[in-house]
């Protein structure tokens, strides 16, 4: 079970958090992008082994979303920060 350093609340247990996937830049204007670009935004993921950028929310805490860099192999947490 991870200890996750929320950028606002400090280190808290994993159960307070919610993982929400890799942050992906939304292609805009969406209507004008190709099916392929849209599919990549919706479904394709880098799914990195090693340092992996991911979006989390401190769901049972401050309720804020943040970007965390985590090693998906060792589960070491490399950084957390507010979403860009």
């Amino acid at each position: 079970m991870l200890i996750i350093p929320c950028p606002w609340c400090g280190p808290r247990a994993e159960q307070e958090f919610h993982f929400a996937g890799e942050p992906k830049a939304r292609p805009v204007p969406a209507e004008q992008v190709s099916d392929q670009t849209w599919a990549h935004y919706l479904y394709h993921r880098s799914n990195e082994k090693g340092a992996h950028r991911e979006l989390w929310s401190h769901a049972h805490g401050c309720g804020r979303w943040f970007v965390m860099e985590r090693d998906t192999h060792t589960h070491q947490i490399l950084s957390t920060k507010a979403p860009a």
């Binding site: 996937g21 890799e22 599919a39 990549h40 479904y43 394709h44 993921r45 880098s46 799914n47 990195e48 082994k49 998906t72």
Partner: peptide
């Protein structure tokens, strides 16, 4: 589980999460 890792080496990504 390592499909994305190999795909990255071949230059593409997949709609997968491990």
């Amino acid at each position: 589980g390592h499909s994305s890792v190999m795909a990255a080496k071949a230059g593409f990504d997949l709609p997968l999460q491990s």
